[in-house]
Amino acid sequence: MFTYIVRRCFAAIPVMIVVGVFVFLLIHLTPGDPADILADEDATPAEIEQLRESLGLDKPLHTQFLIWSGNIATGDLGTSLLVSKPVTTLMAQRIEPTIFLAITTLTFAVFLGVPLGVMAAWKQGTWWDHAIMIFAVLGFSVPGFWLGFMFVSKFAVDWTIVPAQGFVSIREGFGTFLHHMILPTITLGSSYMALITRITRATVVEVLKEDYIRTAYAKGLPPMKVLFRHALQNSSIPIVTVIGIGFALLINGVVVIETVFNIPGMGNLTIEAVLDRDYPVVQGVILVFSGIYVLVNLVVDLSYSIFDPRVRH
């Protein structure tokens, strides 16, 4: 088991190299570069060329790649070409809102999605089941930004019960923090919750057909106990897996929701950097995002092998 874990950890290194090369090429091959963006509307081509030289963008691609990867080896992600601040500083300033948004969303989605899913599975085929599933499918079918704008116009502008935008650090008070998080969390969480509800229902339906559940019922255990103690516990592996895999969905959503609610997080930072061709920032942020993702995947993979010995070679 131990060697398997070590092997999987080492296997993460080539993945990160793939990501690094891929992102570097993707952004550098894209037409338009930071010099174009930095120069004024009426700058002449010669002036832009000069600027490009001073940014080190005139060097051949492989030299730039070597410089960049050499710096990464020493933990230096480079400096933003546009705002001339270290990429690590920029990320440090932006990571807090994203992490908290992910946490609140995850909490919201799991605490609502799992009970709903169990409920639907328990009442399988009834009106309850259909209602919950339609609700879950709906949550999956509405574009996040549309939902967000609808919420803002009703709850923030018309009824003024929640703020329309912005992020307040948890250090400035838990109440204020949570208050600002309500709309973004519900908006982002709706699709994630729908995913969890669906998966929970599907797995619990499976488990409920197992013999030991019938035995448990036959023993006269109360249905709630059977449901949550036996059925849910035995369904937890696929559900946890989906929570891990759904992380990708979460990051996608974060990019959109941060724009709608003006949350100064990583998603916001990345999209701006891509559009401005701020190479070091794009490379750094995607590398970090991917690193987190690889870590999550590693844990999921390891949990597979723990629970299904057949996969362990």
Partner: peptide, 22 residues
Amino acid sequence: MRIMDGLMAIPGLLLAIGFIAL
């Protein structure tokens, strides 16, 4: 699988934005 993992590790929407810019 390493290549697939690498691709999958990049958040999909950001990857898509990258390709669209390219």
